[in-house]
Amino acid sequence: MSISSQSDLVSAEISPHEFSQLWRASRRESLGRAWYKFSRNPLSLIGAGTVLFVIILAVFAPYIAPYPEHVKPFTDFANASNPPSSSHWFGTDEIGRDILSRIIFGYRFSLTMGLVVLSIVVPVGVFLGLVAGYFQHTWFDTIIMRITDIFLAVPPLILALSVASILERNLLNSMLAVCLTWWPWYTRLVYGITTGLRNEFFVTSAEITGASKFHILFREILPNCISPVFTKMSLDMGWVIIIGASLSFVGLGVQPPNPDLGTMVAAGRRYLPDEWWMSVFPALAIVLVVLGFNLFGDGLRDLFAAENS
């Protein structure tokens, strides 16, 4: 749009109401464009669909699962170890519980795990990264970044396993263990972005007009971190779920009889290969959700990359 051809529009006559309408229209337009770009990649769409599907399963588990009572203490030895059939699509386990129902409820634990972990880890990690990055070369930066280096040097699964093993075995503690291993990734990510942005002229300009540190960190720099952080969150959901499942798999996470995908794989493993459905379906369920979040995250990343170019 040319500068001069529009100057007849310059007038304060337009009311604030009209402005907010214009703004909403432009917002709608950019959201529309974003969706258009996102939807051009079939894999991102599949990812988004899978994620949505799993979320619906988890939220409406009691209405969707064919045998909701099978997630409580329940035994039905008459129907134990049945292979997949029309009444039990994914078969039953060694004490007669419907595997499909338990998977659907299992997603509740997986997603809760992911959500709780990320909602603790992201704010903490982002905050530390912002502050350390903005106050680069100060003692705060040194301490925080050394600590993250130490954490990042240890593989997350091993760290989570060792932390979880010294605590009491329950869902809460396994979440705590994963949280401890996960925040440094966000600190690192945001630290990198912040150290790049603190020398950008828009930050400098705010500084020299007298803006507060709070304004600079949270109004100027933070908005620029949101896209990469969201992308990483989506990619991480899958990984957190895998780590949570792994903890349950070795008996450190969700305790029976609660249905967790990792626990189910672990329990079913003993009946391989004859009664394969007991471990294979829960394992596939894990793959599905992890893949879904990863594809979705990749889609988001491409979208943000296209937006910035």
Binding site: Q6, V10, A12
Partner: peptide, 24 residues
């Protein structure tokens, strides 16, 4: 702030609707 922003845009001859544009 709104009135001041409009005044500034007028001062530099930019159309008022530029308020809600993003730099890119």
């Amino acid at each position: 702030i709104m009135r001041e922003t409009l005044r500034l845009l007028e001062l530099v001859d930019l159309p008022a609707i530029y308020m809600y544009k993003y730099p890119n």
